[in-house]
Design a protein around this nucleic acid. Structure first.
Lengths: 254, 254
DNA sequence: GGATCGCTTATTGTCGACAATCTTGCCGGG
DNA sequence: CCCGGCAAGATTGTCGACAATAAGCGATCC
C-alpha cells in the first residue's frame, strides 16, 4: 500500500498504461476529456510510440474511446451503460459466489467474516462516511471474486468490469444510500459461504446486485436526468484536457 | 458474408489486428507459436509500429501471451482454462437468455425458430458433418446473445469469450458428440423465448452450457491427457513460426 | 570433462521525423 | 444573412533507425 507511485514495470508502455488507467479510474481525468497524444506523451515523459500502445490497451478495456484520425477521449459511461454492467455483474458475481462456496479455503472464509465484522463495527460508529462504506463494499466483493479461484473470471471482473464501476462512481459521486440493508445482505452471503451452500450463495449475491441496480434505476428514474455531466460529444472543447492532476472531487486514494 | 478478406479499416493497425485475430482464431497460427515482430510485419506488409499496437490489443483479449523483452506467442488454452470459460459462459449466456426473453423482437424470435428448424432438418440428412453442427450451434447462441440487446454483454461474449471458444475448438478438433441432445435443448430454449418466459430461458440455457461442460470434463477425464499438443513453453523452438498459412488440421473456413 | 563466465548476435523497446487526414477559420456566392 | 467550398494549421498514422535487453555460443577455469 506504499509503493503505488513507482511502478517499476519492465517497459515504458506498461508503466504509462498503468498510470493512465489509474488517472482515469480515480477520476483525475474526467470522462469525455479529449486526450491529445503529444500532450499526454510529454506529461508522462515518454514518446508517442509506447503511449499509443497503452492507449490501444485501454481502448480494449473500454476505458478510452477512440475514433480513427480524430482522437481519443476518456470513456463516458451513460446510465444505460451502468445498468448493462450491473446485469453482467449479477450474472458473473453470482457465479463467483457459487464457485466460492465450493472453492474458498477455510482461512479465506474466516478472513471474510472478520472483514464483515469490521464493517459492521464501522457502520455503528460512523454513519456519515459513505466513502469507506463503498470501499468496504468493494473489498467484500473482491474477496468473494478471488474466492472463486477461477482465474479467467477474476481477471474479467477485477481487470475489466470493476474499473468501469469505480470510474462511474467518481463520475456521478455515487453514495451508498442503503448501507445497513447492504450490510445485512453481505452477512447472509457470508453465512451461505460458511455453510458451503453454493446454490444459496449465488441466489443471495444475485439478489444483492439486482437490488443495487433497481436502486440506481429508481434513483435516476425520478430524480433527474443528470446524464454525462462532464462533457458532451461536441467538438468545441478541444483544448480542455487540463483536468489532469487537479484537485478532483475525491482525491484521497486508498 | 462476402467481403471478409478485404478489411478496409481506416488504419493499418486496425487491419493487421483483424487479420492477426482471424489467423489465430481459425487456427492458421497454432497455439504456442512464437511470433517474431519483424517477420510478422513483413508478412502483413506493415511496419512494426502498427503491428505492436495490434499485438497489445490481442494481448488484452487473451489471444496472445507476451513476455517483456522476450517475445509474443499465440495463447495456448489448457483444459482448465476451457472449463473456466464454460463457467463464465454459463453465467453470461444464462443472463443473455433471460434478457432476450424480454427484449427480443417478435421478428428475431421468428427468425431464430426458423434457424432451429433448418438445423433439425440438416440433422436428419447428414449425421456425419460435425463441422456444420458446431457452426450451427454457434449461430444459435449468437442470435440469443444479440437478442439480449445489452451492448456490453454482446461485446464481451462475441468480441471476447467466443474467440477463445473457437480457438480452442481448432486446437483440440472438438467434435459435437451429443448433437441430437443439444438440438433438443435448443428447441426448448427457443420455446421459452417464444413464450417470453425469462426465468425458464435462463435456467434452460444454463443447463445447456453446464451439460456441455460436464461432457468435456468427462471426455477428457477418462480419455487421455492430450493437453497442449502444439508447443510447450520450452525455449528450444524459437525459430518455428512456420506454421502460418500451412494446411492445418481444419483449413476450411466459414 | 563439465560448468561457468563473457562475448556476439538477434530481438524487442523506444524515439524522432515524415506523410496522411481531419478540423477550423476565412472567403465568396447565393 | 446564411451556406458551401477552400486553404492553413494541427493532430493522428506510419515508418525507419537507434538503444537496451535477452538468448546463443564459445572459451576458459576448476
Amino acid at each position: 500500500m506504499e509503493s503505488i507511485i513507482s511502478d517499476d514495470s519492465r517497459t515504458l508502455a506498461d508503466r504509462v498504461f498503468t498510470r493512465l488507467q489509474d488517472d482515469i479510474v480515480r477520476g483525475a481525468l474526467l470522462p469525455g476529456t479529449k486526450l491529445g497524444e503529444a500532450e499526454l506523451a510529454s506529461r508522462y515523459g515518454v514518446s508517442r510510440g509506447p503511449l499509443r500502445e497503452a492507449i490501444r490497451r485501454l481502448e480494449s478495456r473500454k476505458l478510452l474511446e477512440r475514433i480513427p484520425h480524430v482522437g481519443t477521449r476518456v470513456a463516458s459511461l451513460s446510465l444505460g451503460d451502468l445498468i448493462e454492467i450491473y446485469h453482467i455483474r449479477e450474472a458473473l458475481e453470482g457465479m463467483a459466489a457459487r464457485l466460492a462456496a465450493t472453492h474458498m479455503t477455510d482461512a479465506e472464509i474466516r478472513s471474510l467474516i472478520e472483514l464483515l465484522a469490521l464493517h459492521e463495527q464501522q457502520q455503528d460508529l460512523r454513519e456519515d462516511v459513505a466513502y469507506f462504506q463503498r470501499e468496504g463494499d468493494l473489498d467484500f466483493h473482491y474477496r468473494i471474486i478471488q474466492g472463486s479461484h477461477n482465474g479467467t473470471l477474476i481477471d474479467m471482473l477485477i481487470g475489466g468490469i470493476y474499473h468501469m464501476v469505480r470510474m462511474y462512481r467518481y463520475q456521478f459521486s455515487t453514495v451508498a444510500n442503503r448501507p445497513q440493508r447492504a450490510l445485512q445482505e453481505h452477512r447472509r452471503i457470508a453465512e451461505a459461504l460458511e455453510s458451503r451452500d453454493a446454490e444459496m450463495a449465488e441466489i443471495l449475491m444475485r439478489r444483492h446486485i439486482s437490488r443495487a441496480r433497481q436502486n440506481i434505476e429508481a434513483q435516476h428514474g425520478l430524480g433527474d436526468a443528470a446524464v454525462t455531466p462532464a462533457a458532451s460529444l461536441s467538438s468545441t472543447d478541444r483544448l480542455s484536457p487540463e483536468t489532469k492532476q487537479g484537485p478532483g472531487p475525491v482525491e484521497q486514494s486508498k
